[in-house]
Design a protein around this nucleic acid. Structure first.
Lengths: 358, 358
DNA sequence: TTATATAATGAGACCGGTCTCATCACGATT
DNA sequence: AATCGTGATGAGACCGGTCTCATTATATAA
């Protein structure tokens, strides 16, 4: 217990001195670069062992310019959608010997900017972002301009030519909506979590998130195709928290022309909707039908189980990470836009609308 | 488009040159330390603005020795228990101006060691770990010895005197078990996710995770107190994945003396159990009762909703982070061991055992 | 044997910040 | 007028690695 106190860390120089070689030589051995003889290798390694040398990755990063870290900015880790995706990213990163540093934007553009600034300051090798908005993307342009690879997860940015992995949101929304119109529904609500000042929907100009936009477009087009008039009257934005969602769903279900079916944009929204439907004493699918995006755990164990749009979330994360990693390994190629396919898992939450007049 | 290519970043020296002051002075202004005149401040800031200077946090970290990052090693982010806790940690970290770098151990001791090594190499300011084992903790001792604060989340290590935040696992297990014995159950299974070579339980020596150990102890003591013989015959370890859990639950439910109640150690385990019970056509709580640790989203929306042990997960994360942060801000005090209280949320999954003979 | 290529090593600059210390100017003190 | 204290600034070392380049030793070719 004599080496109490300081604990200043052992450096290359210390090892070099111990091994009686130059700092440069010791560095070569310890850093595993350049050439050196067998004999020197042995000596240096023995010294390193004896002194319990641990490389300072920070110093290493500073000279090389690479940190071995990829930065990830997501909307909210609490949302299982993102935690699965992050898992996919982490796995891909670990496989490539990289680490992940995670930041939450809370879907707030300012928080996103700040997170990006911090991560860039830390000289992450690349960034994966789920952009909260498509309007204000100067900070993302900067990343790209500074030469670090950027990849987009789940949401595309028309104006930004970078690797992007999304799902076929429009098609998914269309299929789900068609399933509902085919069952006879004419009053279908679409509830989504995009940040918005008001819950009512006016037009697409209001929506700054590509995935949401595509879904709304898909939803509306199928509705119109089925001859439903002003389907946008039942589109609701701003379900960003349980409280907001509750407010929305409450208003929606107490309307005179209450919708007979609801399409939810994620499992968190769907859970609140499910709760409220139950709370009102309504029965799924007899009184109201429900489909949600994201095959969350719980959707299969409710009564009835929920029909969902199954997004390959893990693959989404893994693929965007792999794209990014390949690029920062030096691969030169034009930006890729990968669109993964979704599927619908039919369970028990869709039925015909209740007899008219309710 | 003339500044194509390189994009070498702007440094303090560049700003200094532009502002016609010395590097030291520019550094003082940009770093916000030392003293400088109003006039110089203006000049430097203007130059920084013009050149679009962004500090290199890496270089800054190297000299100061602080990285502004706290490392977090958890078992599995996919488990909502951990993702909530991580959210608590992130929030506390951001409030203190720190970042979080996340690593998954997958509850594997070797992965945990590797993660710790990497994070230490990156010179994180402090670490929060959910130790996978209590036997092999040399790597954790090293952290502590190297002078960086370490804090433990959810699991205590008797031999390691560091800040630790856990929940009252023993008491929680006891209360849940008592609820089951009070309802008349005599054959109660406890299914937990600790890593183990075999699923059968022999003795406590087999369990290297404090939280699991406490729960098992609590469970067994209440069983014995209720006069149940060899309650350990229904303790099952190793439910570390859906597949493993399925194997365990399948074996358990097809036994001749099938348990009439099950206590699950986390929501992932409980979900598989719930599924299997339903798959076998059994009815909760008529045929079998179920209680689980962790008030996961889905537990309130099943039919029947599940009675759960509610752990203050977010607070757990937040508190352990705050403890760590206070310490790395220089606070001197003996290691603290905080034990947060749990509560039981009674819902509909507990009933009397089915008439004997089944 | 001498010239030349090649492998191994050492010296020291460098990355981009922080920080110590010396210097200088200027107003206050005696 | 000489001394002192103080605020502002500059020069340069330093953190712990990497990397370039020069030097030396050894092997191969002429």
């Amino acid at each position: 217990m004599k080496d109490s106190g300081k604990a200043r860390s052992v450096t290359v120089s210390d090892v070099a001195r111990e091994a009686k070689v130059s700092k440069a030589t010791a560095a070569r051995v310890l850093g595993g670069y350049g050439v050196f003889s067998e004999k020197v290798y042995e000596k240096v390694m023995a010294a390193a062992q004896a002194l319990d040398y641990r490389p300072n990755e920070l110093a290493r990063s500073m000279t090389t310019g690479k940190s071995g870290i990829i930065g990830v900015v997501v909307g909210d880790i609490e949302n299982p959608f993102f935690s699965y995706a992050v898992r996919g990213i982490s796995d891909a990163a670990r496989a490539a010997g990289l680490n992940v540093i995670l930041a939450n934007s809370g879907e707030q553009i300012e928080a996103e900017k700040s997170a990006v600034r911090v991560l860039m300051g830390k000289r992450v090798d690349g960034l994966i972002v789920t952009p909260a908005e498509s309007r204000d993307i100067a900070h993302l342009r900067d990343i790209h301009r500074s030469g670090r690879p950027l990849a987009l997860l789940d949401r595309a940015l028309p104006d930004l030519q970078v690797d992007t992995v999304t799902v076929d949101d429009r098609k998914a929304a269309m299929r789900a909506t068609r399933m509902l119109t085919a069952a006879g529904h004419r009053d279908i609500a679409y509830v989504t979590a995009v940040d918005s000042d008001r819950h009512e929907y006016r037009d697409l100009e209001q929506v700054y998130t590509s995935s949401v936009r595509e879904r709304v477009e898909g939803f509306l087009s199928v509705c119109r195709e089925a001859g439903i008039e002003t389907p946008e009257r039942l589109v609701r934005l701003g379900a960003t928290s349980p409280e907001e969602t509750r407010t929305i769903i409450q208003a929606l279900l107490s309307k005179a022309d209450r919708p007979t079916a609801i399409l939810a944009s994620d499992s968190l929204v769907a859970l609140e909707i499910f709760r409220h439907i139950r709370y009102m004493g309504l029965h799924i699918p007899r009184d109201i039908s429900l489909i949600t995006f994201h095959n969350a755990d719980w959707t299969s164990v409710t009564s009835p189980p929920i029909t969902v749009i199954d997004q390959p979330v893990y693959a989404l994360g893994k693929m965007v990470a792999e794209l990014l990693i390949r690029r920062l390994k030096g691969e030169k190629r034009p930006p890729e836009r990968v669109v993964l396919q979704t599927s619908i898992i039919e369970r028990g939450s869709v039925g015909p609308p209740p007899p008219s007049g309710r």
